[in-house]
Every structure is written in C-alpha cells, then in structure tokens.
Design a binder for these strands. Structure first.
Lengths: 111, 111
DNA sequence: TATTATACATAGAGAGACTAGGTATTATTC
DNA sequence: GAATAATACCTAGTCTCTCTATGTATAATA
C-alpha cells in the first residue's frame, strides 16, 4: 500500500509534473494555468503550490532556474528532469490503476 | 475550494458509502470486499476503516447495528441512511467533476 | 498616490491515512 | 488438549498533505 498512499493525497504533485513536462513554468503561472485549463475547478493557493514545488525540486523531479525579465522582475522557472519524466510516467500509470480500481467499486451503482 | 478538500483525501469515505448502499455490511467484510472487487488493489487497514466508519456514522450517513450470529459472535452491520444516500449522490457527482478536471490537465500529454 | 496584479515565500492548523498495538471468539491443525 | 490462524472489533500516535494566513517586493493601473 506504500506506493499508493501518495496517490490520492499527492495527486497534486502529478498535476505539477504534468504541466511542467509540457513546458517550463513558474509558480504563479502554474496556478493560473491549472485554473484556466480546468475551467476554474482547480484553484490552488500559494501555500499549496510553493511547498509542492520545493518538495519536487528536493526530490530531483524538477529543477528551478531564476530568470530576470527585461523589466527587472525575477521569476523562477521550473523544468522537468530526467528523473521527473520517469516519475511522471510511473505516476500516470498508477493513476490509471487507481481509476480502474475505483471503477470496479463505483460502477455497480447505477444512477 | 472547501468542498473539494475532502475529495481527493476523503475519496475513501465515498467507497464506503458506495459499498454499504448496495447492501448492509460489517467492517471486516468491507475490507475483504474492497480487496476482492478491486482485484487486490485496495487493501485498507483496520486503522483506516474503523475510524472512517465511526466518522460516517457520527455524520449520520450510515448507521450501525449489532447483530449476534448463531455462533454467538458479534458483528456490527452498517446500513446507509437517507442522508447517506443524498451524500453519496453528491459525492459521485463531485468525483465526476474532479475526474473531468483531471482529464483536462492530464490528457494533453500523450504517451 | 492608492490599489491591483504579479511573483516569491513560510508558519501554523486541521484532517485523514497509516503503523502499531490491543482484546476476544471461533475454527483448524498438530 | 494446545497452539495457531482466521475472524471481528477498537484506539493511540505519527506522518504528511492542503489550506489559511501572513509577509515581502515590484510593476501596472486608476
């Protein structure tokens, strides 16, 4: 059960990896992008996002690099690492397994 | 976001409701049934199940009744309440919303 | 000049899932 | 008859994740 513990709870980390795998992104952008793509469903707070980014970076799944805009503003862009790509593939497969298991339980109930 | 917090984390409570809605069940049976139906995927521990049952009963979603077998053994059978049925319907709809949102994020990534 | 949006960050609280332990009865095996 | 496994319930404590709340700072807008 150990590898499944983080599945339901830590699903958010998968979303992060998924987004960053598509293109490097910075924190604030990720929050907006998740909200936009999910049509307003996901509205994560900074207090959720930044610790998750730091966690993932510490785990070597993503790597952040400071970039300075022409305006002088600083942004920390995160890109996915090789290890992160493997982790993403694993997480996606675990997600599908989880969905399959859920469906086996839930589907018998008709509306 | 408040009503969504329990979605990912509290998905387990939905599984419980779903099972009990189909037929009254007792704790030990639920653990075995979840494992059997999910083909071994779900293997919840007592430490997860019983607190969840008590939580749901306290919330008025299910109700437990002690039954004595001919052998003398005691079992606590839980059946779903009217309130539980409403909650189950709501949870299923929330689950579908969540799935839809997840798909909007995840699907763009092809294998 | 004040407010809003952008952009980062952390501390603390709350809740749920797990680990680990406990009690007691029944059935099976030696 | 004794030891073990299976059945059946329960709780205390720990860990980790998500949220609330707050702080800092700059750029753009009213």
């Amino acid at each position: 059960m150990a590898q499944r513990r983080g599945l339901i709870k830590g699903g958010f980390d998968s979303l992060l990896l998924c987004l960053i795998a598509q293109q490097p992104m910075y924190g604030y952008q990720i929050i907006k992008e998740l909200e936009k793509r999910s049509q307003g469903y996901f509205r994560f707070k900074e207090g959720t996002l930044y610790p998750a980014l730091h966690r993932s970076e510490k785990a070597g799944l993503i790597q952040g690099k400071w970039q300075t805009l022409p305006s002088g503003r600083q942004r920390r862009y995160y890109h996915i690492t090789e290890k992160g790509l493997h982790s993403l593939a694993a997480k996606r497969s675990q997600w599908l397994d989880f969905l399959a298991a859920m469906n086996l339980i839930i589907q018998p109930v008709s509306d």
